[in-house]
Amino acid sequence: MRRHIGFLLAALAVALLVYLGTAWIGNDYVYFAGYVVLQYVVLATAWNILGGYTGYVNFGSAAFFAVGVYTTVVIHKTLALPVPAILPLGGLLAGILGLGMGYLTLRLRGVFFSIATLALAIVLNSMIVNWSFVGGGRGAYVIRPREIAFFTSYVQYLFVLMLVLATLAVWIARMVERSRLGRGLAAIRDDELAAEAAGVPTLKLKLIATTLSGFMMGVAGVPLPYFVTYVEPSGTFSLGYAVNAMAMPLIGGTTSWLGPLIGALLLGTLQQVATVTLSATVNLLIVGILLVLFVTLAPDGILGLGRAIVRRVRRRDG
């Protein structure tokens, strides 16, 4: 545990440096762009707990994310709690959704889970469209407070919040990876039948991973309504979230916490640049092409490429 606390402190120190750096630039655009990139760090890290560690593909990241988003919309219209208080609630609901989905489909072959998650986003979408309280298909406006104590603007506040969430997400993922749970998940990924035979409680571990992954995705969605101030189903359920949450870990490397982080920072920043210089559609096309190229040509992602280079250099020297 002491090693994990050490890592958390180091990660928080890095986050503090990032904060000081952005505060020194002091431009709201940096907070806008930074928020989006950090949101992807949380989503990619959450996806990787199930996808990378366990080997189960979740196509429905947008659905879990949307649960968090619409939790905030409902709370905003009823209790009007502050964002940090909504975080656990949105996460919990998304986690329960993950548990339910997992319970229904994870006892069968893994591919059925993937197909079910793909359809899940579509069903949740039609439920939201039919639910007029949260704006239905027309969408809902969420007015954010004009100012907030200790911060220069509300966007800066949300940026710092997401920075903390991203740090915690990476910390949790690293902790899972190095725990008994992580070793059990890796055993499932490598050979589920053998793991089962060796006494690994596969269903239980898979359900824990699905719930945790769903929880983190839900949390990532909670601050979004205050960030965009206008929420509608087609934007919230956009395939962009699903493809990014999956492409980022696969491009970065799935077996370690570092992979999704690298993938999200790289691809997230690339998309921020491409959205400004090209268009949002072209930028999604780039993500799709990169995803296909990486899974076919570099199956272990950037981390795998890095390791291969290190190995080659060592061999030449030795």
Binding site: G55, Y56, V57, A247, L250, G288, L291, V292, V295
Partner: peptide, 12 residues
């Protein structure tokens, strides 16, 4: 895992 990602990418 990667096969699924491949077809998802093609769809996209």
């Amino acid at each position: 895992l990667r096969g699924l990602a491949f077809f998802f990418g093609l769809m996209f």
